[in-house]
Amino acid sequence: MNRMAFWAAGVVVAAAVMAPARAARVGDKAPDFSATDSNGVKRTLSGNAGKFVVLEWHNNGCPFVRKHYLSGSMQQRQKEWTARGVVWLTVISSAPGHQGYVTADEENAYLKRMNAAPTAVLLDPSGDLGHLYDAKTSPHMFVIDPSGTLIYNGAIDDQPSPDPASLPGATNYVAQALAEAMAGKAVSVPTSRPYGCSVKYAD
């Protein structure tokens, strides 16, 4: 290998390592992943090509998440958009021993109890998927379009508060991004600061 090729190979390796840190940028290709859901099914992003995909970071004990679940608001969004062909993947990146960590059985019981209706819940106790998307909070929301491009990264809505009174009148950025993209329009708010509890990664 000549010096130039060696140098070029080094750049390629560096790029591959660096990729995840910037991969979840709006306008870029969303990084592919493979994760197991609470029914033991392997789910990939590439397996959902041609569809809109929503990623929802979740922690059942976080007051900001509870606002959206105890009010039924999140479940309603899940039902509304999966009925329109959207693949809605809830992701749990809490490490074992941390708040929000659940086994598959616990999660399935929770989904039933809460009447939640995502397409699937991805169990990510290693935090690999969370780190790949640099998910900061629960909730933290991502929307990927049918071409695999990330079109939204940020908060679920414009009301950073755990207070259920903040829900009526809130602008839900995920619903807005999906509606605009499905209508062939540009997403008017493609990024926002996610709000909520920190994702409980293993340190």
Binding site: G97, E106, P164
Partner: peptide, 28 residues
């Protein structure tokens, strides 16, 4: 949203790891 007394909520939060959290009636 109201104030949840800490010990009660803390206990509930810890119970969350065992999946017993967030019964809607309890949260209410």
């Amino acid at each position: 949203m109201g104030l949840l007394p800490g010990t009660r909520d803390g206990r509930r939060a810890r119970a969350g790891r065992a999946g017993a959290t967030l019964r809607p009636w309890l949260a209410a």
